[in-house]
């Protein structure tokens, strides 16, 4: 094992895959000469040259569409959005082109493409730079949506995403790029669609994904001191969702809390709550509870951010709620 930053894990995945397949290229704003807005692509221009590491103008709709067209014609593009907030001006090409092409062409044209970049809040950036759209993309058939929470998962999943023949949305976090974690020395892949039990426990299941899962880890540590044992499932992929892993855990713990950074309405937590009441109703000893971002645009002031985002204290409260113990 070796210790690397999240951004280095992503870079290793990109480098390894680009070395093994000439049809892969990286495209986005500042990815080449600037070495990446968040330095994920540092050094890649030097290794692969301007043909395969391509700086684009600030024109997300245009370059997303060009990349989808290139994928229809045999290439395997990796498109970096500086943040998924900016993907909204490109969403026509993601939803109407990439996700639909195979179906509406009767299977003739496929789109092996990865759209990647950071999602969610990243400090005091106010409303337009702090949004979590995992559930938006997860809603759309034709796409796969991957949201890793640590460097090891990030590398293995990004390699799988690049090799996948379907369009993959790969969502990272500005606040995770500098975080360190252990990864295997050699090459490895992690399959898309398989959740990971990050912490085994017996009293309550906490399902989460992406950077916000850290609030669940912190909560579980605190709750352990009070004798409450939390099982933490990292979904890693929110389309498809590994329902089996969740259901099996709920059958064991009989209690479920879902933690996510998106807004509450029609979120991943709503979907999981539906699935669990449908498939494990008799196993539940308490209603499913969730911790999400507040149902408002995220403001600038730190007090308001604190009042909005999921944190360990809220997760602890949610767990105590489903455990019927006093907060």
């Amino acid at each position: 094992m070796k210790t690397v930053q999240f951004r280095e894990a992503l870079r290793e995945a990109l480098n390894e895959e680009m070395r093994r397949d000439e049809s892969i290229f990286l495209m986005g704003e500042e990815v080449a000469e600037y070495n990446g807005a968040y330095k994920v692509s540092q050094g890649m221009l030097a290794e692969f040259g301007p043909k395969r590491v391509i700086d684009t103008p600030i024109a997300e709709l245009g370059f997303a569409g060009i990349a989808v067209g290139a994928a229809m014609n045999g290439l395997r593009p990796v498109v970096e959005f500086m943040t998924f907030n900016f993907s909204l001006v490109a969403i026509d090409q993601v939803i109407n082109s990439a996700a639909k092409m195979m179906s509406m062409s009767g299977g003739q044209f496929t789109v092996p493409i990865v759209f990647r970049g950071p999602t969610g809040s990243a400090g005091m950036l106010s409303s337009q730079h702090s949004q979590a759209f995992e559930n938006w993309y997860a809603n759309c058939p034709g796409l796969k949506v991957v949201v890793p929470s640590n460097p090891c998962d990030a590398k293995g999943l990004l390699k799988s995403a690049i090799r996948d023949n379907d369009p993959v949305i790969f969502m990272e976090s500005e606040q995770m790029y500098g975080e360190k974690g252990e990864i295997p020395e050699g090459e490895y892949l992690i399959p898309i669609g398989v959740a990971d039990i990050k912490r085994a426990g017996t009293d309550v299941t906490i399902v989460s994904f992406g950077k916000i899962i850290k609030t669940a880890f912190a909560a579980a540590e605190e709750l352990q001191k009070e004798g409450i044992s939390c099982e933490i499932i990292d979904l890693r992929t929110v389309r498809p969702i590994d329902y089996k892993c969740i259901i099996e855990s709920v059958k064991k713990t009989n209690r479920l809390v879902v933690v996510e950074e998106a807004w509450p309405l029609a979120s991943i937590s709503s979907e999981i709550a539906f699935n669990v009441q449908k498939n494990a109703f008799d196993y539940l000893d308490a209603p499913v509870t969730r911790v999400t971002c507040a149902d408002v645009p995220l403001p600038y002031a730190p007090t308001l951010i604190e009042a909005s985002l999921p944190n360990a204290a809220r997760v602890i409260n949610a767990v105590k709620e489903v455990m019927y113990v006093s907060k």
Binding site: A70, M72, G74
Partner: peptide
Amino acid sequence: FFGGHGIVGGQIPLGAGIAFADKYN
């Protein structure tokens, strides 16, 4: 024939991308 596309103008970047791939290759 790379299709018939239903969103007005959506096929324009796609067309450029198809050409991008041929130039790349």
